[in-house]
């Protein structure tokens, strides 16, 4: 139970910072933990697909991602805060995505 207590405490800390009023129950703690593991493993597996471009690049990126993600844990509460229903953050991400898409399609296709 030691590890589980650490997890619950850590989630509670983050939630207090974000002034979230929801209580931390067993269920929400395990859900957060599961989401965390899912996120990290999916990102790492997806990064393996870089092998199509270059093997060494893939190894470096996967290792770097692994260290970065572990160091940044817990990610999920922050990610949830970032994807809130606030219109300002929504429109910011929308315009960011528009810029990235146009840049990638315009320069990426011609130069890569």
């Amino acid at each position: 139970m030691r590890l589980y207590d650490i997890v619950v405490n850590r989630i509670r800390e983050i939630q207090e910072l974000s002034t979230d009023k929801e209580p931390v129950t067993n269920l929400s703690a395990s859900a957060t933990l599961a989401a965390e593991i899912t996120l990290i493993s999916t990102v790492l597996i997806a990064a393996i697909m870089l092998r199509k471009i270059n093997d060494i690049l893939m190894i470096v990126v996967v290792l770097a991602l692994f260290i970065a993600l572990i160091a940044a844990m817990p990610i999920m509460p922050r990610l949830k805060k970032e994807q809130s229903d606030s219109f300002n953050s929504m429109i910011f991400y929308v315009l960011l995505a528009l810029t990235i898409i146009i840049t990638l399609f315009y320069w990426g296709v011609r130069n890569v």
């Binding site: 989401a35 899912t38 996120l39 999920m76 949830k80 994807q83």
Partner: peptide, 19 residues
């Protein structure tokens, strides 16, 4: 691009659903 966006949708959608 379609694959990258789809992967993002899957990861963000399903992990957010869990929360």
């Amino acid at each position: 691009a379609i694959i990258v966006v789809s992967l993002l949708a899957m990861v963000l959608g399903i992990t957010m659903a869990l929360m």
